[in-house]
């Protein structure tokens, strides 16, 4: 098949943008995901595609304070990918932010790579704050970070964490939510990627975690439900978190991002079978044709 996978050199600034700009960046992220996964020959396609719009707004919309040239910059806000299998989207985002060369995305999941199947702190990829992949631990680590900032050091840093919806079946998530709510961690933004898909099927069929909103509200979260593909709603949600944090509302923020697995690629659209599979060459080619 005459198909060559190449990555552009594009990087993006972190600033407030118009919806169309977010859309263009998210397309680049989605293309990266498809390209890196087809080369890796294993990995998760559907989830990363589904959360690309939200990650684009978060990292390239001026909502997070970070310095790619100085990854351990002390005042930085932190992002914890609790659903570690979503690594392809984070790797693309970090590369496009300038943490490392986008060409390194060719090494995803390969022997000796810094782009481990699930993020590993031991390989020192700039921008990775913690190892994650054992579900439920990342949100709890984020709570620990938020405690450090808000309760111990009393600084202005924010902590963002992304969990899946199926991930909420893990008991530790609710231990974490209880502690975050109880300690009033208004510097914590917990994003639930609600695509209602997990490996075995629909989340509601495998084990329902609904109603998510009521659960988080009962744990003292300010809960915002949004369409994860609507840039206006995404911007409003992160604005709301900023406001909550600034006014020291005494509650963590939970953004329930209603997303669509495989968004942007027709044959992956809302299909849980694409949770843990990569595209083959032919599928990748077709997907890239759609992602323009």
């Amino acid at each position: 098949m005459d198909f060559k996978v190449e990555f552009s050199d594009l990087t993006f600034e972190n600033k407030r943008r118009e919806p169309e700009e977010y859309h263009q960046i998210a397309l680049e992220i989605r293309r990266d995901i498809i390209k890196s996964l087809v080369l890796a020959k294993s990995g998760h396609s559907g989830g990363p595609l589904g959360i690309s719009d939200l990650m684009t707004v978060l990292f390239f919309g001026g909502y997070m304070n970070y310095q790619p040239q100085n990854p351990s910059y002390e005042q930085r806000d932190r992002f914890v990918l609790s659903s570690g299998h979503m690594a392809p989207v984070l790797y693309s985002i970090l590369a496009r932010a300038g943490y490392f060369s986008p060409h390194e995305l060719t090494s995803l999941r390969k022997f000796g790579t810094r782009l481990q199947g699930h993020p590993g702190l031991d390989v020192h990829l700039p921008g990775i704050e913690t190892s994650s992949g054992s579900l439920g631990q990342g949100v709890s680590i984020a709570v620990g970070m938020a405690i450090s900032d808000r309760v111990i050091d009393k600084n202005d840093r924010a902590v963002f964490t992304l969990s899946g919806d199926g991930e909420l079946q893990e008991g530790i998530c609710w231990e974490s939510a209880m502690s975050a709510g109880s300690l009033g961690l208004d510097n914590l933004c917990w994003i639930v990627d609600n695509n209602d898909c997990q490996i075995d099927g629909r989340v509601k069929n495998v084990m329902s975690i609904y109603p998510i909103k009521d659960k988080f509200e009962s744990f003292n979260f300010d809960v915002i439900e949004i369409d994860a593909h609507n840039y206006i709603e995404l911007v409003e949600a992160f604005d709301k978190f900023e406001k909550n944090k600034k006014s020291k509302i005494g509650k963590p923020t939970c953004i329930i991002a209603k997303s669509i697995m495989g968004k942007g690629v027709s044959f992956m659209h809302d299909d849980y079978k694409w949770h843990g599979n990569p595209p083959n060459l032919e599928q990748a080619k077709k997907a890239l044709e759609e992602l323009i």
């Binding site: 704050e129 913690t130 439920g136 631990q137 709890s140 680590i141 984020a142 709570v143 620990g144 970070m145 938020a146 405690i147 450090s148 900032d149 309760v151 111990i152 050091d153 008991g171 530790i172 231990e175 974490s176 209880m178 502690s179 300690l183």
Partner: peptide
Amino acid sequence: PERFISVGVAEQNATTVAAGLALSGKIA
């Protein structure tokens, strides 16, 4: 007391919260 965090009977969360604190420069 200002450096003591009570998380209740939740040893899993206690352990990962400790990791989060350590990743923030603390000895947890």
